[in-house]
Simulated scan of single mutants.
Amino acid sequence: MAEGDSVANRGIRVRLDDTATESDIGALRKWLEREKPLDELVRAGELRIHEQRRTDETGSPMGAGMDIVMVLTGAAASTVFQEVLDRVKRAVTAWRDNRREVENGESPGARVEPVNTDDR
Protein backbone atom coordinates (compact mmCIF):
# COMPACT_ATOMS: atom_id res chain seq x y z
CA MET A 1 0.00 0.00 0.00
CA ALA A 2 1.40 3.37 -1.01
CA GLU A 3 1.69 6.15 1.49
CA GLY A 4 -1.67 7.91 1.89
CA ASP A 5 -3.73 5.01 0.49
CA SER A 6 -5.24 4.36 3.90
CA VAL A 7 -6.33 7.99 4.30
CA ALA A 8 -9.89 8.52 3.11
CA ASN A 9 -10.85 11.66 1.31
CA ARG A 10 -13.13 13.96 3.29
CA GLY A 11 -15.66 16.22 1.72
CA ILE A 12 -17.72 19.30 2.42
CA ARG A 13 -20.96 20.04 0.61
CA VAL A 14 -22.35 23.53 0.24
CA ARG A 15 -26.02 23.46 -0.73
CA LEU A 16 -27.99 26.59 -1.47
CA ASP A 17 -31.77 26.41 -1.17
CA ASP A 18 -34.18 26.37 -4.10
CA THR A 19 -34.23 30.16 -4.36
CA ALA A 20 -30.63 30.09 -5.64
CA THR A 21 -29.87 30.66 -9.29
CA GLU A 22 -27.05 29.19 -11.35
CA SER A 23 -25.45 32.62 -11.06
CA ASP A 24 -25.52 32.29 -7.26
CA ILE A 25 -23.82 28.90 -7.43
CA GLY A 26 -21.08 30.23 -9.71
CA ALA A 27 -20.57 33.37 -7.63
CA LEU A 28 -20.30 31.40 -4.40
CA ARG A 29 -17.85 28.94 -5.94
CA LYS A 30 -15.63 31.83 -7.10
CA TRP A 31 -15.90 33.41 -3.65
CA LEU A 32 -14.73 30.16 -2.03
CA GLU A 33 -11.90 29.73 -4.54
CA ARG A 34 -10.58 33.19 -3.62
CA GLU A 35 -10.47 32.46 0.12
CA LYS A 36 -6.73 32.50 0.82
CA PRO A 37 -6.45 29.33 2.97
CA LEU A 38 -8.67 27.39 0.56
CA ASP A 39 -6.74 28.70 -2.46
CA GLU A 40 -3.49 27.57 -0.84
CA LEU A 41 -4.87 24.04 -0.37
CA VAL A 42 -6.08 23.94 -3.99
CA ARG A 43 -2.65 25.05 -5.24
CA ALA A 44 -1.01 22.35 -3.10
CA GLY A 45 -3.28 19.70 -4.65
CA GLU A 46 -4.91 18.92 -1.30
CA LEU A 47 -8.34 20.41 -2.06
CA ARG A 48 -10.61 20.19 -5.09
CA ILE A 49 -13.64 22.44 -5.50
CA HIS A 50 -16.28 21.54 -8.07
CA GLU A 51 -19.97 21.76 -8.80
CA GLN A 52 -22.05 18.61 -8.78
CA ARG A 53 -25.63 17.97 -9.78
CA ARG A 54 -27.74 17.01 -6.77
CA THR A 55 -28.23 13.28 -6.55
CA ASP A 56 -30.63 13.03 -3.62
CA GLU A 57 -33.12 15.70 -4.73
CA THR A 58 -34.51 16.75 -8.06
CA GLY A 59 -34.78 20.38 -6.96
CA SER A 60 -37.63 22.65 -7.94
CA PRO A 61 -37.87 24.05 -11.46
CA MET A 62 -36.78 27.45 -10.09
CA GLY A 63 -33.75 26.06 -8.24
CA ALA A 64 -30.29 25.49 -9.63
CA GLY A 65 -30.12 21.83 -8.55
CA MET A 66 -26.36 22.00 -8.01
CA ASP A 67 -24.11 21.69 -4.99
CA ILE A 68 -20.56 22.88 -4.49
CA VAL A 69 -18.44 19.99 -3.27
CA MET A 70 -15.01 20.39 -1.76
CA VAL A 71 -12.84 17.31 -1.39
CA LEU A 72 -9.80 17.26 0.88
CA THR A 73 -7.30 14.59 -0.11
CA GLY A 74 -4.35 12.81 1.45
CA ALA A 75 -2.95 13.99 4.75
CA ALA A 76 -4.97 17.21 4.61
CA ALA A 77 -8.16 15.17 4.77
CA SER A 78 -7.63 14.30 8.42
CA THR A 79 -5.35 17.03 9.74
CA VAL A 80 -7.15 20.20 8.65
CA PHE A 81 -10.70 19.04 7.98
CA GLN A 82 -12.41 20.84 10.88
CA GLU A 83 -10.45 24.02 10.18
CA VAL A 84 -11.50 23.95 6.52
CA LEU A 85 -15.13 23.18 7.43
CA ASP A 86 -15.19 26.17 9.80
CA ARG A 87 -13.53 28.39 7.16
CA VAL A 88 -16.10 27.36 4.54
CA LYS A 89 -18.98 28.11 6.92
CA ARG A 90 -17.58 31.59 7.59
CA ALA A 91 -16.98 32.20 3.87
CA VAL A 92 -20.54 31.19 2.95
CA THR A 93 -21.90 33.55 5.61
CA ALA A 94 -19.70 36.38 4.28
CA TRP A 95 -20.84 35.67 0.70
CA ARG A 96 -24.52 35.74 1.74
CA ASP A 97 -23.97 39.06 3.59
CA ASN A 98 -22.20 40.54 0.57
CA ARG A 99 -24.87 39.32 -1.85
CA ARG A 100 -27.58 40.88 0.31
CA GLU A 101 -25.79 44.24 0.01
CA VAL A 102 -25.16 44.19 -3.75
CA GLU A 103 -28.27 42.47 -5.12
CA ASN A 104 -32.00 42.85 -4.66
CA GLY A 105 -33.85 40.32 -2.55
CA GLU A 106 -32.81 37.99 0.20
CA SER A 107 -29.76 35.77 -0.20
CA PRO A 108 -30.46 32.07 -0.70
CA GLY A 109 -30.35 29.92 2.40
CA ALA A 110 -27.27 27.72 2.66
CA ARG A 111 -26.17 24.51 4.36
CA VAL A 112 -22.54 23.53 4.82
CA GLU A 113 -22.01 19.95 5.92
CA PRO A 114 -19.45 17.16 5.86
CA VAL A 115 -20.07 14.40 3.32
CA ASN A 116 -18.55 11.04 2.58
CA THR A 117 -16.70 11.09 -0.70
CA ASP A 118 -15.08 8.77 -3.10
CA ASP A 119 -12.19 10.00 -5.22
CA ARG A 120 -14.12 12.39 -7.50
Rank of each mutant, 00 (worst) to 15 (best):
P37M: 06
E40Q: 11
E33F: 07
E35C: 10
G45W: 00
R29T: 03
W31Y: 12
D39T: 08
E35V: 15
V42G: 07
P37N: 06
D24S: 08
L47V: 00
E35Y: 08
A27R: 14
R29A: 05
E22C: 13
E40W: 03
A27N: 14
L16T: 05
R43L: 11
V14M: 00
D17G: 11
L41Q: 05
R34M: 13
E22K: 14
E46Y: 08
L32R: 05
K30I: 08
W31F: 13
T21P: 05
V42N: 05
A20D: 09
L32V: 04
G45H: 02
L32F: 06
L47D: 01
R29P: 00
T19W: 06
E33S: 10
R29N: 04
E35S: 14
E35M: 10
T21Q: 09
G26E: 11
E22Y: 15
E33G: 10
R34V: 11
D24E: 11
D17H: 07
D17V: 05
L41A: 08
G45Y: 01
L41S: 01
K36Q: 13
E35W: 12
D17W: 05
T21I: 09
D18F: 14
A20V: 08
R43C: 04
E46V: 02
L38F: 01
I25R: 04
D18T: 14
A20K: 07
V42W: 05
L47K: 01
R29V: 03
T19I: 10
G26A: 15
D17M: 08
L38D: 00
L41M: 06
W31V: 02
T19V: 09
D39I: 01
K36P: 10
R43Y: 02
R29Q: 09
D39G: 06
D24A: 09
L28K: 00
S23T: 12
D18A: 15
E33C: 08
W31N: 08
A20F: 03
S23V: 09
E46M: 10
K30N: 14
G26C: 04
G26L: 12
I25W: 02
E22Q: 15
G26F: 07
E35D: 13
D17L: 08
E22V: 15
E22N: 15
V14P: 00
R15C: 07
E33K: 12
R34A: 13
R29K: 12
L32D: 03
L16V: 04
A20P: 07
